[in-house]
């Protein structure tokens, strides 16, 4: 059986690719593949990391259409006969569409202590509840603590929406497309941006500025250039 990682133009060099990675070439397209060892398919930590490593190597060399993790075809002939040949036109069009586009992934995390301090300072009701529950005995203060925590969670959510909106507004003009993901508490912002390779530097600078502006209250995790994981799909699918 053969694992498929991604599709690249056939002329993309394979030099320096992770060990064991081969190509199946057909009609100007190459699928990056490797054989699956053994009779049973177990997804290990190493499999997940190597899927990412193969795509990461490919995107450094040129355009790549990343496949979702874990797609296995019968053998290399099936990769040509069941993937590259029947999907040739769509795959070629996608490679053209994403030729110069990479994904940049941004996550912003609150420095919890700093943002909580902002919230207590800006909301008198929360400040009062905080004073009332500080140092109070566990049992007596319990209902007030739940109310305090709920009010803080709500304030944090409002703050998150406002910060996320501002970060998005700053970065979106630099991108061709963007996907914002649902945030969770403490995670201020998660989004992927589809960016022309020529504008990555401008995006880097914008990230630099954002990190400075929010220094002390947020940390940013900035990944890329990545293959366009969040953006690539066949027409008509979602």
């Amino acid at each position: 059986m053969t694992v498929v990682y991604g599709i690249v133009p056939a002329e993309t060099p394979l030099d320096g690719a992770p060990a064991g990675i081969g190509r199946v070439v057909s009609g100007g397209l190459a699928a990056l593949v490797s054989p699956v060892e053994g009779a049973e398919l177990h997804a290990t930590r190493r499999d997940l990391l190597s899927h990412s490593a193969v795509l990461e190597h490919a995107v450094a060399a040129g355009p790549v259409l990343p496949l979702r993790f874990g797609i296995v075809l019968r053998d290399e002939d099936a990769v040509a006969a069941e993937l590259l040949e029947p999907r040739h036109d769509e795959l070629t069009a996608l490679l053209e569409q994403f030729e110069r586009l990479v994904e940049l992934r941004v996550k912003a995390f609150y420095v919890e202590e700093a943002v909580l301090r902002e919230i207590v300072r800006s909301d008198p009701a929360i400040a009062r509840l905080n004073e009332a529950t500080r140092g109070a005995s566990e049992a007596a203060a319990h209902p007030h603590r739940v109310r305090l925590g709920e009010a803080v969670a709500r304030a944090l959510e409002a703050q998150r929406e406002s910060d996320a909106g501002a970060i998005f507004a700053r970065l979106r003009p630099l991108a061709e497309d963007a996907v914002v993901e649902d945030g969770e508490t403490s995670l201020a912002f998660t989004a992927s941006f589809l960016v022309d390779r020529g504008r990555v530097e401008a995006f880097d600078e914008a990230m630099d500025e954002l990190a400075r502006e929010h220094e002390g209250r947020m940390t940013f995790k900035y990944l890329g250039p990545l293959p366009p994981h969040s953006f690539v799909m066949f027409p008509g699918e979602s």
């Binding site: 899927h51 496949l67 979702r68 995790k221 250039p225 990545l226």
Partner: peptide
């Protein structure tokens, strides 16, 4: 406060990208 990496550096980041994203 800006942690920059060219590629995902841990399992959580990798899972985030390859389990429910990409061509199917």
């Amino acid at each position: 406060y800006l942690q920059r990496a060219p590629s995902p550096s841990g399992l959580a980041d990798v899972i985030d990208l390859i389990l429910d994203k990409g061509l199917v």
